[in-house]
């Protein structure tokens, strides 16, 4: 069978690969996308590495640290490829930071960080797999599904 690309190559930009199947739209949701960013999304694409995966290709866009940190929480298995002139010039896996600052909202409505104080939320990582984080203010723990819903 002839090998074809489901999603065409990009000239310049970022490829977010190996996103767990079904999470691409959630990942896209937390990225800052501008007018000149064309986006291709592959959902449930067959992969060698994991059974099915999602892929996002964004033209003319290189991700910021805070976006990479957010992706690491939503899709810890994701890999990032930086493309210039159709060539991958850098490829790396997302790396979960040891402290998560200003990314997540604490699910505890009674937490001081949800009351309009001039502070960013801050969480420490209790476990990466399964994901469990802990608010350094109210000490409440959040599991993966709560993290995903509160980025």
């Amino acid at each position: 069978m002839e090998k074809t690309l489901k999603i065409s190559k990009i000239r310049e930009g970022t490829v977010i690969d190996h996103i767990p199947a079904g999470k691409a739209l959630k990942v896209l949701d937390i990225l800052n996308i501008y007018e000149n960013n064309s986006i291709s999304i592959g959902i449930r694409v067959l992969s060698n590495k994991i059974e099915y995966k999602d892929v996002i290709k964004i033209e003319n866009r290189f991700l910021e640290k805070i976006e990479l940190d957010k992706i690491s929480l939503l899709a810890p298995s994701a890999t990032i490829s930086i493309i210039k002139n159709y060539v991958i010039i850098e490829k790396f896996s997302v790396d979960m930071p040891s402290k998560i600052k200003g990314i997540l909202k604490c699910t505890n409505q009674n937490c001081i960080t949800n009351s309009g104080e001039p502070v960013k939320s801050e969480f420490s990582i209790i476990s990466k797999k399964p994901l469990v984080v802990k608010c350094i203010y109210c000490k409440r723990e959040m599991k993966e599904n709560e993290v995903t819903d509160n980025i």
């Binding site: 937490c111 001081i112 009351s115 203010y137 000490k139």
Partner: peptide, 13 residues
Amino acid sequence: RHPLEGAAFLASK
């Protein structure tokens, strides 16, 4: 003393 959790930690910061 404060009704919200984490208030004393915030105050100490």
